[in-house]
Design a protein around this nucleic acid. Structure first.
Length: 569
RNA sequence: CGGGGCGUGGCGCAGUUUGGCUAGCGCGCCUGCCUUGGGAGCAGGAGGCCGGAGGUUCAAAUCCUCUCGCCCCGACCA
């Protein structure tokens, strides 16, 4: 490809719309352009990187017996009604109608469609296991798209679905996908760590997310260096700690005036207490019924845990009006003492002694509230959000935290969809059984974004060879010097013949401009052809990552490049 | 949805508070000269109904109303 022909409009300045480095660089290097919030057009360079990732995914999916299919983006409402998710998905689903008023959606995922596809064709255990995958656009009308490809409303996803005849088969499919994912991300030049996760709207119990640790990540991961436990904060487990701490005598319950003091921080400042001496009382509405959740003042409630514990569908924080009705006080003064709704407390609350709590009365708190004496709870459970420093639920070590970008997730679905949609097959013994399913996703665009997030410097992108849009750029210092131009053209042809993906910067630009663009776009290898070295019969090969330059005799340049590429891929 | 911010040539911005001549600057773009080892220089030039609609006014980028879009924080989610 000739640089003069390549549609790669680079930007000198950073577009105001981009916050994240990866997003900025994708725009600046001419990889993509925004078309609407959360939707992007890929330009040639961006598309090539995407395609490289897709190809790696294909190879690894095929290697574990995956077969590629392609399902439509537009899906009929009926199948979503069968699974119950037409109602469940809510505003996040892009919905549309055809001219006859039939309801459709832009697929946010494809469990329903694949299940419908397989149920009408697969009848016997003899046809299992079946692993089908596709690489297709997905649509989710995100509340807040952001960070470029990191959270778009349209995104490319590889999704594989496995159909097995029993749990054992599912287990094999699951771990086959799991290990394929390890290889995929490694081949993309990423360190992606599997962590235990919540399954969210997809459903199922066993699930891992693959996380690339990065400050830009939207997820938070807790991990234990001792035993290797790692989990998304949504999932990370708390433990029922032994009641430690110095024994304290129970003090009498005392009401104190706390005018305008409603947050934990304010309460602590006002009463000269520590957050851990307080108990937070949160009023929730669970499927229409009010409940109160108690966590220690220095802890946050994990709503996912509470929802699961209560087994409810809808859980939302009560609004001010409801809180006033239930507690008799404005927001910020709720407390467990005398509260009429069911109380659920995090394990850590169990050991609280002489705690500060809201008085269920405007501008007042209670000192020395004590469990058993002043209030009782319906149950203790693991309800809080785990923080770095908390004990590891497996080995008791200390958990550490880090932000992460979720590039993939694997789920054991079980029979959630096959059951709901009547997708069954005949077992060996003649019994009709729903398929045991798994699903396995990779965000392709997000993976590219993560690669850039982890591989860049102040000058631009540093592509790993495996997914670089092009491997090599040839930069003649001056195209007007016939010797340089000829040498460049000759090398270009030579590399093309060797199958190297190469760009010749044939533009009549000053060298600085060409170097800047080459660095920005991030070609792993740059060959500079200048008058000085050419006189000596040499060219310079520069490594984008290390910035190392080696002078190589002209006739050996092509083979040297091939050697470097082979070593790095 | 709540809070905050922003829409002015392709990109980055000034001008808006306190209405007033042909709406500016840097980068990019076009032409010519010159230059060629890290985003050169000189000269000339093209390109903007100031997001849109309505209103106030002798006069609106600037004031008022409505509206659309985008970004950030939060809730939510892959």
């Amino acid at each position: 490809m000739l640089m003069s022909q390549l549609y790669a409009p680079t930007l000198r300045e950073t577009p105001a719309e981009a916050e994240l480095v990866s997003h900025q660089l994708m725009l600046r290097a001419g990889l993509m352009r925004r078309s609407a919030s959360g939707m992007y057009s890929f330009l040639p360079l961006g598309l090539r990187a995407i395609r490289k990732v897709e190809q790696i995914i294909r190879e690894e999916m095929n290697a574990i017996g995956g077969q590629e299919v392609l399902m439509p983006i537009v899906q009929p409402a009926e199948i979503w009604e069968e699974s119950g998710r037409w109602a469940e998905y809510g505003d996040e689903m892009f919905r549309l109608q055809d001219r006859n008023g039939r309801q459709f959606c832009l697929g946010p995922t494809h469990e329903e469609l694949i299940t419908a596809l397989v149920r009408s064709e697969v009848r016997s255990y003899r046809q299992l296991p079946l692993r089908l995958y596709q690489i297709q656009n997905k649509y989710r009308d995100e509340i807040r798209p952001r960070f470029g490809l990191m959270r778009g409303r349209e995104f490319i996803m590889k999704d594989m679905y496995s159909f097995d005849k029993d749990e054992e088969g599912l287990d094999k499919s699951y771990w086959a996908a799991f290990h394929a994912y390890e290889r995929i991300f490694q081949r993309c030049g990423l360190e992606a760590y599997p962590v235990e996760a919540d399954s969210g709207a997809i459903g199922g119990d066993v699930t891992h997310e693959f996380m690339v640790l990065a400050e830009a990540g939207e997820d938070f991961v807790l991990y234990c260096d001792k035993c290797g436990y790692a989990a998304n904060v949504e999932r990370a487990e708390g433990v029922d700690l032994p009641h430690a701490g110095p024994a304290q005598d129970l003090q009498p319950l005392t009401e104190v005036a706390t005018p305008q003091v409603s947050t934990i921080a304010q309460v602590c400042a006002f009463l000269h207490k520590e957050p851990r001496d307080c108990i937070k009382t949160l009023i929730y509405i669970a499927d229409g019924q009010p409940v109160a959740a108690l966590v220690r003042g220095d802890h946050n409630l994990n709503e996912i845990k509470l929802r699961k514990f209560l087994g409810c569908q809808v859980l939302e924080l009560a609004d001010g009006e409801t809180i006033a009705r239930i507690t008799g006080a404005p927001v910020g003064f709720a407390g467990p003492v005398g509260l009429e709704v069911p109380l659920y407390a995090d394990y850590a609350v169990e050991s609280a002694v002489n705690a500060v709590v809201g008085a269920n009365k405007a501008d007042a708190h209670l000192l020395n509230a004590n469990l058993g004496r002043d209030f009782t709870v319906k149950a203790f459970a693991d309800l809080r959000e785990i923080q770095p420093g908390d004990p590891c639920p497996r080995c008791g070590g200390v958990l550490e935290g880090a932000r992460g970008i979720e590039v993939g997730q694997v789920f054991k679905l079980g029979t959630k969809y096959s059951q709901a949609m009547g997708a069954t097959f005949l077992q060996e013994n003649g019994v009709e059984t729903p398929f045991i399913m798994g699903c396995y996703g990779i965000g392709v665009g997000r993976t590219v974004a993560a690669v850039i997030e982890k591989n860049h410097d102040e000058d631009g992108i540093i592509w790993p060879v495996s997914i670089a849009p092009y491997h090599v750029i040839i930069v003649p210092v001056s195209m007007k010097d016939p010797a340089q131009a000829e040498a460049a053209e000759k090398l270009y042809q030579e590399l093309l013949a060797l199958g190297v993906e190469v760009v010749l910067d044939d533009r009549d630009e000053r060298p600085g401009v060409k170097f800047k663009d080459a660095d920005l776009i991030g070609f792993p290898i740059r060959v500079t052809i200048g008058p000085k070295s050419l006189e000596k019969g040499e060219m310079e090969i520069r490594n984008r990552r290390t910035k190392e330059v080696q002078s190589v005799p002209v006739e050996k340049v092509a083979s040297a490049i091939r050697k470097i590429l082979e070593a790095e891929s």
